[in-house]
Design a protein around this nucleic acid. Structure first.
Lengths: 134, 134
DNA sequence: CTTGACTCCGGACCCAGGTCCATACTTCAG
DNA sequence: CTGAAGTATGGACCTGGGTCCGGAGTCAAG
């Protein structure tokens, strides 16, 4: 126990084997220990790290962000971790705002569209077609 | 007037020349008329169509969506246009929900983080590190 | 006529985040 | 011992939406 092949590790972390190797190549995981045969061997440290990556991604962090987060985590710098999380929160809020604006615009058009009749009466088509600020 | 080179068209539509050719290759614009020299020539129809594409993209439609919208627009099928817009509205709503969930999760963590002290006391790091549903 | 700006084309390249491939070697169950 | 399943490698490929490149041909002003 606590000694895992790459396949077991991948399965327990819920990612693909290729993804594990991809993360290693891209410095999200440290170079794995090897058996005499060249096979990679992992312990619970790597499993935790891999799950950390998965969860951080689920929270909207990019792999670059995750690399940074892992470094901060390794050096126990809570203040920087918190600031990184706040920045990400700001990013996410901005993406939401952008989508909300789009939704509001599209919603207005859909609501105003009778769904039948002449094409010239369709506000959706008109909004896309008519002359406006280029 | 009303006869435009690709450069003039691109400028008036607010896109790059390469983008115009890219759209033509990908059937968002019909094959352009040509001068004897092989240079493309455009009229106001193409300018309108190009602006249509720009606006639809701004509303969150992918180029595949736009192709569909243009086809529906060409055949004056208002009902289908409205349904396509409603589907897109649903997509957008879903993306917003997803981001809201992420924001809520991250926000809770950030709010609970003191920003100093032991790494074990940082809820952000803990959330990423601790054993949970894999 | 010359010069600089414009346009042509096909194909390579960019971003992120992987995924897939062929070929060769290792490990494990029976 | 044998055959299936697992693993190693480097590099190609994928998605979307373009962007850039180089060499060659064209257009317009002076």
């Amino acid at each position: 126990m606590s000694s895992l092949s790459i396949g077991q590790l991948a399965k327990q972390a819920g990612v693909a084997i290729d993804t594990v190797r991809y993360y290693e190549r891209n410095a999200l995981l440290p170079p794995a220990g090897r058996l005499a045969s060249g096979y990679r061997r992992y312990g619970t440290t790597e499993l935790k790290r891999l799950r950390f990556i998965r969860r951080a991604k689920a929270l909207g962090f990019s792999l670059d962000d995750v690399r940074e987060l892992l470094a901060l985590s390794d050096e126990h710098d809570i203040a920087k971790v918190k600031r990184a999380a706040e920045r990400k929160l700001g990013d996410i809020a901005q993406r939401i705002e952008e989508l909300e604006r789009i939704r509001a615009g599209l919603n207005t058009l859909v609501a105003a569209c009778p769904g039948h009749g002449r094409a010239e009466a369709c506000p959706i088509l008109n909004a896309l077609t008519l002359e406006q600020a280029p």
